[in-house]
Design a protein around this nucleic acid. Structure first.
Lengths: 212, 212
DNA sequence: GTAGCAAGCAAGTACCTACTTGCTTGCATC
DNA sequence: GATGCAAGCAAGTAGGTACTTGCTTGCTAC
């Protein structure tokens, strides 16, 4: 029974914190949002700081981080799928991440926990592309690390800032993963597969050209 | 005489706000930071909200936004120079931008003013690359808008998050503009000029590869 | 010199903040 | 039915917040 209340408080804390940040997330607000007496909050977590720390751990660290698979049979498909998953993950935590990063100087430990996931996700992409390169599918001259870092930044930017400054994201939400992947692949010189074209012309399903 | 004090308050407000955000920027803190009586602050600006709004306008809107020139004689050089300028500009306002964007939902007008500059900067880059494309220097198939949006996101990410999560930015600060530009140019298919290579091996000047 | 005015200073108002204390309620177990 | 315990409730503490008021200081212009 205590477990259910604990989770309700944590969920409420996540909502309030995502909207108002650490300073704005008052214990009173969290308590009313959780439909729980304010005292209960202190009794179960000790203090506001401990509560929000616990909230960040359960909310961020517990969520699965999307990793890219090592299956390079259809890199375009796998990359697009992965990109969409990462974007979805980041968008789901957008408000939380934004606040946590903005308050990183004041609460550095919180920021560490929040960006640990995406970091390792990026690393898995580096390995993926290097694997492709070893198979001769990507340009050996390409600066993979820089391209991946830019790719990750693009996904971060899209997920975190699209709603607040939509004019700098010309592509609609659904088309974003495909476009990012296409552009990314051009950057690392991956031409092994047919690049899906921007125009709406019919594409032959299953076509696989190896023009190298 | 009042002018000097006014500016001192605005500068202090900028520092305090950049560090603690809107809620954390107390009038007391700003006053002591400006070495001014707290009452003077209310007498010259009316309220905390008006003060911080004035601060954002003078601090952000007044700073020159780096635009890319229309000179396409040496695109690599021009792009690199521009990229370095934008990064410098963004880094100079990193804390401010970070806080303002994070609080965008609560104070949307402030966020608008803050990201107006970089937005038009991005637009100037689109025009620049389209100009290159018209001259036949860039790939006509390239998705310029997406590439530019990713490039802008990369600069934003670098400027705003490098200090808080340095591990996702493998390239050192000085080398970043060159690397971003090189990767960006690969993405838009700009091969007209010699791409500076990452490795230190001798490069043959004038080599022009069009591997398409 | 004196009038005006910008700024400092001390104190106060009304409210919000995290957090505590003492007591009551309801439920589950023996 | 008695015991224990988790949660609610009301009230209070100590401090911070934006903002105001009344008065003093110091400088500048006539």
């Amino acid at each position: 029974m205590s477990e259910e209340i604990r989770n309700r408080i944590l969920a409420a804390a996540a909502r309030v914190y995502a909207q108002y940040g650490f300073r704005g997330a008052t214990t009173r607000l969290i308590a009313t949002e959780a439909d729980v007496n304010e005292v209960t909050l202190f009794r179960t977590f000790g203090s506001k700081a401990e509560l929000l720390q616990a909230m960040l751990q359960t909310q961020v660290a517990a969520t699965a981080v999307p990793m890219i698979s090592s299956d390079t049979s259809d890199p375009v498909k796998e990359l697009t799928r992965w990109c969409a998953t990462v974007l979805e993950y980041l968008r789901g935590h957008a408000h939380l991440i934004r606040k946590t990063i903005a308050e990183a100087e004041e609460r550095p430990d919180a920021a560490c926990a929040a960006c640990e996931g995406p970091n390792s996700a990026g690393h898995s992409l580096v390995l993926f592309v290097e694997h492709l390169r070893d198979e001769g599918l990507a340009d050996p001259d390409a600066d993979v690390e820089t391209a991946v870092s830019m790719f990750m930044s693009a996904m971060f930017g899209d997920a975190l800032y699209r709603d607040v400054m939509p004019h700098v994201f010309p592509q609609p939400v659904e088309a974003a993963p495909e476009k990012y992947v296409t552009t990314f692949m051009r950057a690392v010189g991956l031409r092994a597969t047919v690049l899906p074209d921007r125009s709406r012309q019919a594409r032959v399903a299953g076509t696989r050209r190896r023009s190298r």
